[in-house]
């Protein structure tokens, strides 16, 4: 899944919803499409254990039923962890993500030095090639915490360093790859092969953790937090908000009497549990790639 783009995931979910027979609402018009929306999909090449999406239904269904039916209809590597009814509870605030980054061929001490230099800097400007040309952004500004995960590094096969970071959702988005570019610029930190990036969690940001920049505590708080919704700033948010609203209206209109139901789901797509992460990945017992990693390009439909 790591190599699937956002659009690939979206197609798989659409088909999963059809296979599961969920009564998904469709947009009106010449070419109706199912009302499923996504927030902040994991970027290029990153695996994820914490993605969120919203499905508008035309009939009320028990969230656990949705979870089981959709879960068994999705391709291997996309698992439904939790489904919540947005009519009954508020959506989680997604303010930050916790990431794990495995750097093959990097000595832990070099990584520690690079992380210290990065955290000591006030700014870390990097450039990223986007569809709209080269964009400059400050990678340091997004980082709430960053550290070398000593325990995971010690447990992993030798010859790699493992980072953990909490990155704030902001516009323009700072991605783990931007932080890696900054580390390369500042400290010549160069992995032997492409780093393995995994989103471990998304959720509300614990403010004292942010203020203290205490990294791991912040991450723990974030990881354990009940997921609650927070629209990200920017145009995309406005659109998403609108979509949600439209969904509810459409639900009311088409189901005549039944309450509109919206499901909010967490889709984990992690390659491994954090503790099991290694530099050289072993194929699993079925002798196939771990299809649980994801992403190439991020595009929100």
């Amino acid at each position: 899944m790591r190599f699937a783009s956002h659009r690939d995931i979206a197609r798989a979910v659409e088909r999963g919803v059809r296979r599961a027979g969920l009564p998904v609402a469709h947009s009106a018009g010449f070419s109706p499409h199912p009302k499923i929306s996504y927030s902040g999909g994991a970027p290029t090449g990153a695996a994820s254990e914490a993605e969120f999406l919203e499905i508008s239904l035309t009939a009320e269904l028990d969230p656990d039923v949705v979870r089981d039916r959709l879960g068994s209809s999705l391709p291997e590597g996309i698992d439904v962890i939790e489904v919540a009814d947005l009519a009954a509870q508020a959506a989680p605030r997604l303010e930050a993500s916790e990431w794990q980054v495995v750097l093959p061929g990097v000595a832990p001490d070099d990584a520690i030095g690079a992380v210290e230099a990065f955290l000591a800097a006030e700014h870390a400007d990097v450039e990223r090639l986007t569809s709209k040309g080269v964009r400059r952004l400050d990678a340091r500004a997004g980082v709430v915490s960053l550290e070398v995960d000593r325990r995971a590094t010690a447990e992993a096969p030798t010859g790699c360093a493992i980072l953990r970071m909490v990155v704030r959702h902001m516009a323009p988005a700072v991605r783990p790859e931007d932080i890696l570019v900054a580390l390369r610029h500042m400290s010549a930190l160069e992995p032997a092969s492409p780093p393995l990036v995994t989103r471990l969690a998304q959720g509300p940001l614990c403010t004292d953790a942010a203020a203290a920049s205490a990294g791991f505590h912040g991450a723990a708080a974030l990881g354990a937090a009940t997921m609650a919704e927070a629209p990200r700033p920017g145009r995309r948010d406005a659109e998403q908000g609108q979509v949600m609203e439209t969904c509810l209206v459409a639900g009311d209109a088409t189901t005549a009497g039944t309450a509109p139901a919206s499901a909010y789901e967490q889709l984990p797509r992690g390659a491994e549990r954090p503790g099991e992460a290694g530099c050289a990945r072993e194929p699993d017992e079925r002798d196939r790639p771990n299809a649980r990693d994801r992403a190439t390009e991020q595009r929100v439909s």
């Binding site: 899944m1 190599f3 798989a12 790639p289 299809a291």
Partner: peptide, 24 residues
């Protein structure tokens, strides 16, 4: 499986998902 050899190459190529398999 040659996947352990292949996987590090996939981030370097266009549309790597096509080589990953795992179709429904």
């Amino acid at each position: 499986s040659v996947y352990p050899l292949l996987e590090p190459l996939l981030p370097l190529v266009r549309k790597p998902i096509q080589y990953a398999g795992g179709e429904l």
